[in-house]
Design a protein around this nucleic acid. Sequence first.
DNA 1: TGGTGAATGTTATGACATAACATGTTATTG
DNA 2: CAATAACATGTTATGTCATAACATTCACCA
Lengths: 133, 133
Amino acid sequence: MTTASPELTRNQSLVLETLAKAEGPLSAYTILDKLRDDGFRAPLQVYRALDKLLGFGLIHRLESLNAFVACAHPHCHAHGLIAFAICEKCGQVDEFSDEVVQKRLAGWAEDHRFKAEKTTIEIRGRCANCLAA
Amino acid sequence: MTTASPELTRNQSLVLETLAKAEGPLSAYTILDKLRDDGFRAPLQVYRALDKLLGFGLIHRLESLNAFVACAHPHCHAHGLIAFAICEKCGQVDEFSDEVVQKRLAGWAEDHRFKAEKTTIEIRGRCANCLAA
DNA sequence: TGGTGAATGTTATGACATAACATGTTATTG
DNA sequence: CAATAACATGTTATGTCATAACATTCACCA
């Protein structure tokens, strides 16, 4: 599925660390700003690293946010379909997977002779903490 | 859930018709270009109409494409969670819903005290036609 | 009739993403 | 070792998606 990751390059490591340290999702330009002191000057430096990291399965892209997060399970690259619950208030992202949902969507695809390449599931709303507050 | 739609305004009707006639999803700027002859001159004219139509449940936004499609079931505004299968080759979009997936995600949300506002499910891949060809 | 709220028009700007090309780096391998 | 292939990087420019801010117009009805 995902390409194995050899060593990460300097740029890739910097971008991954930035995402790993972050509380929530970051846009490419936010990452760029955080890495100015490390010599980053142009968006492409970030986007190229992001592309590789996505390929390695070390990060995810949140389509509804145009932003990126470090994978919550970076050591088991093998997990299938992943869903995200995104809090609109605090930005917190919860990453999970569900066998039943996965099988169900796979079933639909099979019934319709549709070959799925990539599936996006994103739930926007309010997390427990923010609801309690 | 979705606000009832009174009469559509001229701009809203033009945008909706454009989407309804289209083969696949259109970006806001593509819609703008198609409506130049009708007097459209600025992106906001399109985006404002799109916002209203989204509110009425007459169109959908495809997050992974930054594009819009007319709702496939414009007369039953009541359906719950909607999923999309998007062909990367021909651009065709198949809109469907699945009770099981919906219940399963709702169950996760309940377990985690997460209040879902909007859920996005988009499957990118190849449709049956394109695979056959 | 005049006032309120919604829709519209217009200009400018912000935010996200990639094209194109030059240069550097590292690892073969002949 | 030198040639070269493959990949990563740097840089400028540009393309694409979306909204802020403000002025004007329109429809309705108190």
